[in-house]
């Protein structure tokens, strides 16, 4: 057992060294995922790998991506529950820019294998009676720091990770729907019947960070695209938006990146200068999603 542990940790150190964010499965084979994504800094070190058709090739380590075997399910589950060390993910939604394009909803539903009426993110048409302003408001899980859904869960199927993300483990969920009742943001949805394409995905092993395949009789919810974050990408909805509505980033670094313009800005400055607000802060849920107010000219 001890040797196994050291093996894992040396491997992890090695992977961390070459910039692969600590995904260390003991027997994870490495496959090449195309060399066109190496523009983000070449590491100048090459290694030899064997391709599926038995050719030995040399490639740059920056192009390497670890792939977890389906047999490594327990390890995947553990990673899913722990989250990314040292991160605290936040989302900023600029309501002044939302044109109700709904590209976010589409990409989210396709990534999470959701039916058209199931929403992890839902763009609502809101009406402010005082100003007469009509605006569009994308509503996701708020990934609260005091999440009411997590406290009520009887089996620890939904949980808060160290990086602030609230996830669900649909292999543990008993389908009591207490979390749906407890969430004041109506952010959760349920698989009332067989999920979309249930036949097609029935043998696919469960990925907790993506929460697919969906399972009948369990709750599903926004995961801040934890699977993408692990790979250093922005969430699906954030990158899909054509109008620059979404900023996403790490509150510890105080930086957020716009999903459309790829511009990175100071979180604190963005929030302060635009009079950002949270949804129903009076409930004490402490959301990690911020909203920048809509503008009159938009309506």
């Amino acid at each position: 057992m001890e040797t196994k542990l050291t093996q894992t940790s040396t491997r992890r150190k090695f992977l961390e060294k070459i910039g692969l964010a600590g995904i260390g499965a003991v027997s994870a084979p490495l496959i090449v995922s195309g060399c066109n994504s190496t523009d983000s800094g070449e590491s100048n070190s090459v290694i030899k790998v064997l391709t599926p058709d038995n050719k030995l090739v040399e490639i740059d380590t920056a192009a390497l991506k670890p792939v977890l075997e389906s047999g490594d399910k327990q390890h995947l589950q553990k990673l899913g529950r722990e989250g990314l060390k040292g991160k605290k993910f936040v989302m900023v939604i600029d309501l002044a820019r939302c044109q109700n394009e709904r590209a976010c909803m589409k990409s989210c539903q396709s990534a999470h294998q959701l039916k058209p009426e199931q929403h992890h993110i839902n763009v609502l048409e809101m009406h402010d009676e005082d100003s007469g302003l009509t605006y569009y408001m994308p509503k996701t899980c708020q990934h609260c720091d005091n999440p009411p859904c997590v406290t009520v869960c009887p089996v620890d199927a939904t949980f808060k990770r160290q990086d602030g993300i609230v996830l669900i483990d649909n292999e543990r969920c008993i389908g009591c729907r207490f979390c749906i009742a407890a969430c004041p943001y109506s952010a959760r949805t349920f698989n009332w019947t067989d999920p979309k394409d249930a036949e097609k995905y029935k043998d696919v092993s469960y990925n907790m960070e993506l929460n697919v395949p969906q399972k009948k009789g369990t709750v599903t919810k926004c995961a801040f695209s934890a699977d993408q974050l692990r790979e250093g990408n922005l969430p699906y909805c954030v990158s899909a938006c054509p109008n620059g509505v979404y900023y996403f980033g790490d509150a510890n670094e105080d930086l957020v990146t716009n999903g459309t313009t790829r511009e990175t800005v100071r979180l604190s400055k963005l929030l302060k200068e635009n009079a950002a607000y949270k949804l129903m802060p009076e409930l004490g849920t402490k959301p990690n999603v911020f909203y920048l107010p809509p503008r009159q000219s938009n309506s």
Partner: peptide
């Protein structure tokens, strides 16, 4: 009322 009565033992 449970979505997954087969997981009752999880409780």
């Amino acid at each position: 009322d449970m979505g997954r009565p087969d997981r009752l033992h999880h409780l």
